[in-house]
Design a protein around this nucleic acid. Structure first.
Length: 283
DNA sequence: AGTGTATCCTGCAGGC
DNA sequence: TGCCTGCAGGATACAC
């Protein structure tokens, strides 16, 4: 569920809520969200203090002192809910999977209905290695249109699939892939390498614009997503393509279509996003 | 290097 | 009301 803007929104809310707090006991209610023994997580975080909270792609990284991080991937329905001292976290969460108790009585709950999310305790080096395998951050100032164009040049995969591949670009998921392609006027099934410099520049600008606008709006809530304060995002009503099949395109009024490939739905406007590259100049 | 399929899980909407 | 099917912001493993 949560893509880059949702993860970013959570990070911003979490940072002031947990930075400076020291972890005490950890309670694991659902072991399947861990990728390592519960003991290793509990021992790895106990006694360590939160130095900061960061985001990488769709992951939330809680940085502890003494060379440790808690890396959280929210999957489809994951939430990270901080609670103040004296609040009973298990009474507030609906599907608690892991509870981190801080020594001052505050707590942090990883709550995940479907439990596709993951929680890991890693050394800084192990996390860096993981992070190095992920593609560039689209909002990074160093991520240029030329860089995107170059990366697209050799790939035969459909651009929507390309955008979802976290090794090629970080943080884009199914919602914002559809939105960015709609804004850029590119059909989701177009081969990545068929997109020329101009198209890549449009896509680059669209990806950044839609991600930035979604962060500004606190993310997109379709059903489950909530920020660290439990609030839904406000970007859902600004979606122009995702989930709008049958509705008129806001630009040309043609009906938005839904197609399925790569096992997932893609939404696009058949006229604004032609499958063949639009011809330039005279016929 | 691609694609399709299945898997992990729960919940909700829609059809009958 | 109940039962069924299909669908869902992700990631990965597999066969072809």
């Amino acid at each position: 569920m949560p893509e880059l803007p949702e993860a970013e929104t959570i990070v911003r809310g979490l940072r002031p809520a947990i930075t400076g707090r020291t972890v005490g006991n950890t309670r694991v209610l659902h072991h399947d969200v861990l990728r390592q023994p519960a003991r290793r997580v509990a021992d790895g975080v106990r006694g360590r203090t939160v130095q900061g909270v960061e985001r990488r792609a769709k992951n939330i990284v809680i940085c502890l002192d003494e060379d440790r991080v808690i890396a959280v991937n929210l999957g489809m329905t994951g939430r990270l809910l901080p609670f103040a001292p004296k609040v009973t976290p298990l009474r507030e969460a609906t599907h608690p999977a892991v509870v981190f108790h801080f020594r001052d009585g505050a707590s942090l709950v990883f709550d995940d209905t479907r439990r596709f999310g993951t929680v890991e305790c890693l050394s800084d080096a192990a996390w860096r290695e993981r992070s190095d395998r992920m593609g560039p951050e689209p909002l990074d100032p160093g991520y240029t249109a030329a860089r995107l164009a170059e990366a697209l040049r050799t790939s035969r995969s459909p651009i929507r699939s390309w955008l979802l591949d976290q090794r090629r670009i970080a943080g884009v998921g199914n919602i914002y892939a559809s939105e960015a392609l709609h804004l850029a006027g590119i059909h989701p099934e177009r081969q990545a390498r068929s997109i020329d410099e101009e198209g890549a520049a449009a896509l680059h600008a669209s990806i950044r614009a839609v991600l930035a606008a979604a962060i500004e709006a606190g993310g997109t809530t379709l059903r489950d997503y909530r920020d660290a304060d439990g609030e839904p995002g406000r970007f859902a009503r600004r979606l122009l393509a995702y989930g709008r099949d049958g509705e008129p395109c806001t630009r040309c009024a043609a009906a938005i279509r839904r197609i399925v490939f790569g096992g997932r739905s893609a939404f696009y406007c058949p006229t604004c996003q032609p499958k063949r590259r639009p011809r330039r100049g005279r016929e």
